[in-house]
Write a protein that binds this DNA or RNA. Structure first.
Lengths: 200, 200
DNA sequence: GTGACAGTAGACAGATCTGTCTGGTACTGT
DNA sequence: ACAGTACCAGACAGATCTGTCTACTGTCAC
């Protein structure tokens, strides 16, 4: 009897799941603690014993979103061989993300829109952006492009734009548009890298 | 004595100015009515007599931002002759906007992150996006591109991405990067239009 | 059985927020 | 002179929010 087959998730997990749904759907300020504990089916003391404060709950919610996104990208990338295909796969994941009917935009960007400038929420957001950017830089370097930083900036531009556009226009086609433009930029950067490396 | 030389702005104008500063800097939910009237130097009754509710004040704040942005772009564009130059001028204005030390991201995108899905705030945001998009479509058509809608979608992608990136990374160089990529896309679309129009 | 542990239920304090209302002041046109 | 308008100062009601606290329940190891 190590675990019941339909064991109820722990209070912590239920709180986090409820917080994820509510914060992402309606925003952080708009959702009170009472709504979270009601949806989680949990006592208020459980929430405060586990997380200490609403701020910490929000931080944990964002960290779990960050981990999930990074795992999703890493999983997709692992199956692909070339850096070029891997860079494009980032935009394929983006396409899946924005096509989800539950999609409501970038959770980090929305959270920072509500949070004070210097807080811990901003740090989580910065960490998430740094991860994506450095992945793009690494893959660009692997692909032999001359200036991987510049390519990464361009790709991040498209990535961010697609997230924002998909939400505000309720139009997931921004992701495929971003992928198309990204493909052109990647191929141009790779071609430039090759011509520079090969002596004329 | 039509007006004193240093006439104090009306209560309405002072409220709107204070709301603009506070809502844009700190977010809508984070700023209470009391903070607004304190900064405006105004009685609470004046605010409610003039605007009726906080929601209406927020709506007016966003509409005034929308009008200011559109006027700024229209002014810049009026001096330029070709549709190509005008399209690029949109990104020049973007560069000015994100370089402002007071820049905190797109006011509409931040407001929609806090507001409920169906509300009036979303409508203002939709209106602002529709204006920008249709400007891009019109200029693209004037430039003779084959699919102005597709070009506009790509340019909007860059525009949104630059706004988001400049805020989250605190890096205004996204605007010039966006302009560079945009220039390539515009020229490619124009070239395609010409080759399609000219019989081979 | 018993103690440790994880959790439930809900009252409560204290702060904050929107919106209303009363009462008073200063200017303006007639 | 006087009515009307625009505005200021702030008390107040009622709702809502975070966070604390008390008291109770079920489960498991030993």
């Amino acid at each position: 009897m190590s675990a019941k087959t339909t064991a109820r998730p722990s209070a912590r997990d239920r709180i986090l799941a409820a917080a994820d749904e509510l914060f992402y759907e309606e925003g952080i300020h708009s959702v009170g603690i009472d709504r979270v504990i009601e949806r989680a089916g949990v006592a208020k003391a459980s929430l405060y014993n586990t997380f200490g404060s609403k701020d910490e709950l929000v931080r944990t919610y964002l960290l779990s979103r960050k981990a999930a996104r990074e795992a999703q990208i890493a999983r997709k990338i692992a199956r692909l061989a070339t850096p070029r295909a891997r860079l494009l796969a980032i935009f394929d994941v983006l396409g899946d993300v924005v096509a989800d009917p539950e999609f409501r935009g970038c959770a980090f960007q929305r959270a920072t829109a509500e949070a004070p400038a210097g807080g811990s929420i901003r740090q989580v957001c910065d960490g998430s952006r740094a991860w994506t950017r450095s992945l793009m830089v690494d893959l660009g370097r692997d692909a032999g492009v001359v200036d991987p930083q510049a390519l990464a900036q361009q790709l991040l531009l498209l990535y961010d734009g697609a997230l924002m556009g998909a939400r505000l226009d309720r139009d997931p086609s921004t992701a495929t548009a971003a992928r198309t433009v990204a493909e052109g930029l990647i191929d141009a950067a790779i071609a430039q890298g090759r011509s520079g490396v090969d002596p004329s």
